[in-house]
Design a protein around this nucleic acid. Structure first.
Lengths: 126, 126
DNA sequence: GTAGAGTCTGACATGGACGTCAGAGGCACG
DNA sequence: CGTGCCTCTGACGTCCATGTCAGACTCTAC
């Protein structure tokens, strides 16, 4: 498929897809006229990459651990494996932090609910 | 306390603290010579703000929901309350997404472990 | 063959949370 | 009094994922 279709099927912009390729996160074949051609598997690849971006990883970091995804071997595993486990732990810590933050917000929400209840018992918002 | 001490006690840079004030996330008194002076409570305020930044909120969003934190009243609650609950839900969804991403990484990790185990049963990394 | 949509490369623009530097003044200590 | 550290404002620099635009080429359909 061409880049436009891949964009539609993944939700990424055409611009982003080209950027991913530039950062070595995604590869493509080329037609005789130079247009990018993608295999079906590119869809999953893009979805994974976007998922990792959303998780806060940088393109460099993603590039560093992608070898583990592509071919799990002794060769690639060396550095990539370390990054992979590292990022997995970073992500875990981040999740824990976010949960704490959510709890903080819940406290504020609760405090507001109680305050409003005290002011006018029938007026609590949703 | 002055800005340097607040920075040390919160882990934020002096630059960041001035930025927070510019964005109306933090307020300070001024000495006669114009230096910023902070109350003890500023420490907690900065820690909260940083926590929200880490959670991916923008300074504008934080500014919009801080009124709920500062004075839970009918006045402030109106817009701020909506933002607060909105961001709470956004955060919750984000956490769920991150958990899925972590699971994806775990799958990759597991696949690698198995692959390496198949290659050389005694060679699995930590 | 011609219109219209898609694609190419290259480059500049953007937004957000800072870093960093310049030039000036403030404060405590000896 | 000077010396060293802190603070001030204002401005420009940075990083990174993208948007956006220009100018040229390609592909599809009629």
């Amino acid at each position: 498929m061409r880049i436009g279709e891949l964009a539609r099927r993944t939700g990424a912009s055409v611009r982003s897809l080209r950027y991913y390729e530039e950062q070595a996160l995604l590869s493509s074949g080329r037609s005789s006229s130079g247009q990018r051609l993608y295999a079906e598997s590119a869809v999953d690849r893009v979805l994974l990459v976007r998922r990792l971006f959303t998780a806060g990883l940088s393109s460099r970091t993603i590039a560093e651990l992608l070898p583990c995804v592509d071919m799990p071997s002794r060769e690639t595993a060396d550095e990539a494996w370390k990054r992979l486990v590292e990022e997995r732990e970073r992500l875990d810590a981040h999740i824990a932090d976010l949960v704490r933050t959510r709890d903080s917000l819940d406290e504020v929400i609760q405090a507001n609910r109680e305050h409003l209840a005290a002011l006018a018992p029938a007026e609590q918002p949703a």
